Simulated scan of single mutants.
Amino acid sequence: MVREDREIDALRLDSIVRDVQRFIAKCDHIYLTIDLDVLPAAEAPGVSASAARGVSLALIEPLIEAVRDSGKLRLADLAELNPSLDIDSRTARAAARLVHLLTLDN
């Protein structure tokens, strides 16, 4: 399943979450990599290839929650944080928020 950033918006989010859940249903275990380059440059300037559009945290979080809540998540990592490019630790804070979201107990 592949979605371009222009295809992910609030109107389609519920449908995309269901697609993610259908994909997860076919899996025994999930290894999730979150590439911080997916976030818009305004939310994550501290990456090597900032996105002109990207997918906002508000839209990424429900997708991550679907993976986390599946009970199949075994390993997760975040990629592409470059502190030397980060502005006001904005990207680091976004990454910390995503790690916190991944580790919440339900």
Rank of each mutant, 00 (worst) to 15 (best):
P40C: 02
N106P: 08
Y31N: 15
L11W: 04
A51C: 13
K26Y: 01
D86Q: 12
L98V: 10
L85C: 09
N82K: 14
C27E: 12
L39C: 02
N82Q: 15
K26C: 06
D28Y: 09
L78H: 04
I8M: 02
V55S: 10
I34S: 03
A52R: 15
P45K: 12
N82T: 13
A66L: 01
L13A: 00
I24S: 07
I24T: 05
D77R: 14
A79K: 12
L13Y: 02
E7T: 03
D69T: 08
R74K: 15
D37R: 08
L57H: 12
V67L: 01
A49H: 13
V17P: 01
E4C: 09
T33A: 11
L13D: 01
M1Q: 10
A44I: 07
R6W: 12
D19R: 06
E65L: 07
N82H: 14
H100I: 01
T91R: 09
I87L: 06
D105H: 11
L78E: 01
D5Q: 14
D14R: 10
G46H: 12
I87S: 03
L85D: 06
E80G: 11
E43F: 02
S84C: 05
V47F: 07
P40T: 04
A51N: 11
A42T: 13
T103G: 06
A66I: 02
V47L: 08
A94E: 06
L13R: 10
I87M: 04
L81S: 11
E65G: 01
A58L: 10
A49G: 06
R18I: 03
K72Q: 10
L104F: 01
A41T: 14
V99F: 09
A76Q: 02
V99K: 02
R3Y: 14
L39E: 00
P83Y: 06
A41N: 13
V17E: 00
L36C: 06
L11S: 13
L11V: 07
V99E: 00
A41E: 13
A58Q: 14
S70R: 14
R74Q: 13
R53P: 00
D37C: 07
A94W: 00
D86T: 06
I64V: 15
R12P: 01
R22V: 10
A79H: 13
R6C: 03
E7I: 03
G46E: 09
R22F: 07
V99T: 07
G71T: 10
I8L: 05
I64K: 02
P83F: 08
A52P: 04
A66T: 03
L59T: 01
D37N: 15
L57F: 12
